[in-house]
Computed example of a mutant assay.
Amino acid sequence: MAEAKQPRAANIFDVARLAGVSHQTVSRVINGVPNVRPATKERVEKAIAQLRYSPSPAARALVTRRTRAIGLITPSVTTYGPTSITMHFTMAARAARYSVDSISTAPDDPAAVRAAVEALLRQRVDAIVMVVADLAVLELARGLDLGVPLVVTSSSATRGPHLVSIDQYRGARAAVRHLIDLGHERIVHLAGPTTAADAVERLRGWKDELAAHRLDAAPPRHGDWSAASGHSIGLELDLSNASAIFVGNDQMAIGVLSALRERGLAVPEDVSIVGFDDLPEAGYLYPPLTTIRQDFEALGRMTMQKVLVALEEDQQLTEDTPLPTELIVRRSTRAIEMA
């Protein structure tokens, strides 16, 4: 017995015949080209549904000059913030049916970032997203004119239409205000690297909140975001007049907690500590860490939404308000006991 032939898949000409239009009109409807009359568009869409027609992605790319691919440039670091942003943006892009072509570069090398941009443009990506951790790279990104939409996730006191961010500055102020509300007046700061955009904004928030309460700010110390740097600085940090430490991220706070135990100091009985990021492990430290939570999932969605506005709605990008943070109070902070 001869095998039954599989039915032929419908093509664009079949749709055109059923709808009573030209195949060019079908192409315009499929690709969202304007100036198709509503009644005609409705006939084409009904024909597509009836025939179960699925246009070739390659053919659509030729018509729209789009590849449905987004270039993503990320810093080659393992810290919680950049890796979380990358993960959640990639998930949001895939949910919108876009692929992501990723390139990692040294976090503080503008030349390497520029080379990555050029490589992605040669691959004909529809847009480029940059996760920026370094001030020099952020300055480079602000000056780029690529011919495709560019969206940058970074921290900055200067906002812009292409920038999406979480409000590091107000998060830092909330951390310091929490300590001040508990009665702490001498709050030292272990900051991140001097060239890190997040660190600059958190340091600025620490200074401004102390100034708002007319409290002195001792010179900050700078780590490299790692627990090891928090530990080494924590061992030598002058706490003779301090009752609290605002640490620039949770990983350094882990190192500080270890160092203080080695020095015979108890947290929070002798020193209160607030971190930043709310690592998944932060609630299981000893003691559980008071910290500032960032919504990286919302940032990933917001970044992709900005890409979609530029690509699919063909609109100029507008300035967005940075996403808020949340103070998570645990047992690493306590009120000063009044004499």
Score class of each variant (00 low, 15 high):
97 R>W: 08
278 D>A: 13
86 T>H: 12
326 E>N: 03
96 A>S: 14
254 I>A: 15
144 L>A: 02
8 R>G: 12
116 A>R: 02
51 L>D: 09
36 V>F: 04
164 V>A: 08
334 R>S: 12
53 Y>G: 09
231 H>F: 15
110 P>I: 11
237 L>A: 08
302 M>R: 14
190 L>H: 07
117 V>Q: 00
249 N>S: 04
54 S>V: 15
90 T>E: 13
274 V>D: 05
56 S>C: 06
281 E>P: 02
11 N>C: 12
188 V>S: 07
273 I>C: 10
138 L>T: 04
97 R>D: 15
264 G>Y: 09
302 M>C: 14
82 P>Y: 09
5 K>P: 00
267 V>L: 13
213 H>R: 01
64 T>R: 06
146 L>G: 02
279 L>T: 15
165 S>I: 00
235 L>I: 11
104 S>Q: 09
64 T>D: 05
287 P>I: 08
167 D>E: 14
110 P>N: 03
338 M>K: 13
236 E>H: 12
249 N>Y: 06
311 L>I: 15
269 E>K: 11
208 D>T: 13
303 T>M: 04
101 D>Q: 13
172 A>L: 11
151 V>G: 00
1 M>F: 03
167 D>L: 13
153 T>D: 09
10 A>T: 04
290 T>F: 06
309 V>I: 15
127 A>W: 02
184 H>N: 10
4 A>S: 13
168 Q>W: 02
333 T>E: 04
323 L>D: 03
245 I>E: 06
304 M>V: 15
291 T>S: 13
86 T>Q: 15
257 L>G: 00
166 I>E: 02
196 A>G: 10
229 S>E: 10
196 A>R: 00
54 S>W: 05
102 S>K: 07
114 R>C: 01
174 A>R: 01
247 V>C: 09
78 T>N: 12
189 H>G: 03
108 D>K: 00
243 S>Y: 02
220 P>Y: 07
208 D>C: 11
233 I>G: 05
284 Y>E: 11
226 S>H: 04
264 G>F: 09
164 V>S: 07
200 V>K: 01
211 A>K: 12
213 H>M: 05
328 I>C: 05
161 P>W: 14
190 L>G: 08
105 T>A: 03
246 F>E: 00
164 V>M: 08
276 F>I: 12
41 K>A: 13
319 E>F: 00
169 Y>P: 00
325 T>W: 08
164 V>I: 10
221 R>H: 09
338 M>A: 14
139 E>N: 15
296 F>E: 00
205 G>C: 03
105 T>H: 01
228 A>M: 04
290 T>P: 07
235 L>R: 15
73 I>R: 05
264 G>N: 07
159 R>S: 14
320 D>F: 01
264 G>C: 08
38 P>Q: 12
235 L>G: 09
258 S>A: 14
121 L>V: 00
194 T>Y: 09
196 A>D: 05
104 S>T: 11
20 G>A: 12
308 L>T: 12
319 E>G: 04
23 H>A: 12
181 D>E: 15
295 D>C: 13
200 V>R: 02
230 G>Y: 04
186 R>M: 09
88 H>R: 11
73 I>W: 07
70 I>C: 08
273 I>A: 10
234 G>C: 07
91 M>Y: 13
231 H>N: 07
98 Y>R: 02
141 A>F: 06
226 S>L: 01
231 H>S: 08
203 L>N: 03
71 G>C: 03
112 A>F: 04
13 F>I: 10
160 G>F: 08
107 P>T: 09
156 S>L: 03
256 V>M: 06
274 V>H: 05
113 V>H: 07
